[in-house]
């Protein structure tokens, strides 16, 4: 790797469409940097699927790669069949919090349960950003959004904990101020088998930050930094003390038979028995 990293080497000749200050620039760049550091000169070993939402736009059509841009919440089922039929490729799903754990939650749980060999990267901006800032399953308690003008009266979902409970092989959460940790986590996850999930808490200055009272992106990133605690720290804390904190780090790394391994073992067995 003599030449230096440039995300443009992995992208079509198009500009990412995100708002100024959006955390998804960093997520896209960090993913490609991880790919670069693993030694991939292009994305020909990868197949991407995504749903509908800002995060889903990262691969489609911006990555110079095969990308299947599916419907809202439906990126995981096609990723499942693609991985089964193209087992030698890294199948990576990009989606937002609404896409992955809102409308598409059932697919997420079942993919973790099956230990489907895909990497799901979820940009969690705690809101439905593309549609203008409606309350999401990840919106913090009491936070105002366009559909909870008096503050959200619902409790947010902890997607990382859910993935662990459902049987994921690898789960991590970082924020856009933990770029280096995120990059290392992506590198590790790409190389692991089974269902891998990385949640990236990311700022949406347009549809969330502004509305909940952050003056600018810097203030929001500062909040991410000061409000984050590690998985270890959270373990030692009482629940009420860790409420509202962003727990970052690796939640689990576990090896058990994966969907691809199980399906191909069955195929072999059935064909042997004639």
């Amino acid at each position: 790797m003599a030449e230096t990293f440039s995300s443009r080497n992995y992208m079509r000749d198009l500009r990412l469409p995100f708002c100024p200050g959006c955390g998804l620039y960093a997520l896209s760049d960090t993913f490609l940097r991880a790919v670069y550091e693993l030694g991939y000169k292009d994305l020909s070993n990868f197949i991407f699927t995504s749903g509908i939402g800002c995060t889903s736009w990262i691969p489609s059509p911006y990555f110079k790669a095969d990308s299947v841009h599916t419907l809202h919440g439906r990126s995981i089922p096609p990723a499942t069949s693609i991985k089964l039929l193209k087992p030698n490729f890294h199948v990576v799903v990009f989606g937002g919090d609404g896409d992955i754990v809102g409308i598409g939650l059932s697919h997420f749980i079942h993919a973790a349960r099956r230990n489907t060999d895909i990497l799901v990267i979820m940009g969690n901006n705690m809101v439905y950003g593309m549609t203008g800032g409606q309350v999401a399953p990840t919106t913090p308690y009491k936070a105002p959004t366009t559909t909870t003008p008096y503050g959200s009266f619902e409790h947010p979902l902890d997607a990382a904990k859910l993935a662990v409970a459902a049987g994921a092989a690898y789960v991590a959460r970082w924020t856009t101020v933990h770029i280096n940790e995120l990059k290392e986590s992506i590198k590790k996850a790409i190389q692991l088998q089974g269902f891998r999930f990385i949640e990236v808490v990311t700022q949406c200055p347009t549809a969330f930050g502004r509305r909940v009272g952050f003056k600018d992106v810097g203030e929001m990133l500062k909040w991410f930094k000061e409000n984050s605690i590690t998985v270890k720290q959270a373990e030692g804390m009482r629940e009420e003390d860790s409420e509202g904190k962003i727990v970052v780090g690796e939640f689990i790394e576990m090896r058990r038979p994966t969907l691809v391994e199980n399906v191909y073992a069955l195929l072999k067995e059935v064909q042997k028995s004639g």
């Binding site: 020909s44 197949i47 059509p61 095969d66 990308s67 299947v68 841009h69």
Partner: peptide
């Protein structure tokens, strides 16, 4: 997918 065409599929 996986044939090197870098196909972008979107509805």
């Amino acid at each position: 997918v996986g044939e090197g065409f870098n196909v972008a599929v979107t509805a």
